[in-house]
């Protein structure tokens, strides 16, 4: 039984940049990676290239799950968009951080910040984001 789900919805920034949001819920691992894959495929089919992945309800991510981001981000960027990541729980952020993903992805604390980043320049390559403070190992 899969305990992972992706819900997609449209969002708009303050200056009306259309962005597609994927809300992840549950555990993203080798078994459920195909669900996220399908969601990205659908984004591609529907020409949504500005994507925010909201991890507010994401409880776990495995390397295979991270790999899905890697597999799609290049195409999305080539199409002038980006995959930005927001609202990660500390435990999940830690995995992103451990594997060096903050260097490769724009990871924001909130969806609003991620929206704002799209506003800055949707076609910009993402800059490394800062780690949320609580994820530092004390």
């Amino acid at each position: 039984m899969s305990n992972f789900s992706v819900h997609s919805r449209a969002a708009h920034s303050a200056h009306d940049v259309a962005v597609h949001v994927l809300d992840l819920e549950g555990e993203l691992d080798a078994h459920t990676a195909s669900d996220l894959e399908a969601a990205f495929e659908q984004c591609r089919a529907e020409d949504h290239h500005r994507i925010i992945v909201n991890g507010a309800d994401l409880d776990y991510i495995s390397s295979a799950g991270l790999g899905v981001f890697m597999a799609y981000v290049e195409d999305v960027r080539e199409a002038g968009g980006d995959i930005k990541i927001a609202n990660l729980k500390p435990k999940v952020y830690n995995v992103f951080d451990l594997l060096g993903f903050p260097m490769l992805f724009d990871i924001e604390d909130t969806e609003e910040e991620a929206l704002a980043r799209f506003e800055e320049n949707a076609e910009d390559a993402p800059e490394p984001s800062d780690a949320p403070g609580e994820n530092r190992i004390a």
Binding site: A30, A33, S34, S62, A64, G65, G100
Partner: peptide, 25 residues
């Protein structure tokens, strides 16, 4: 766990890809 339950070669290959890309960036 996942690979043990899969026997489609394409799917196995995809999982390997994801794991490589995710773990090694």
């Amino acid at each position: 766990q996942e690979m043990g339950a899969i026997r489609e070669e394409a799917r196995l290959g995809k999982l390997l890809s994801y794991a490589l890309m995710g773990q090694m960036a």
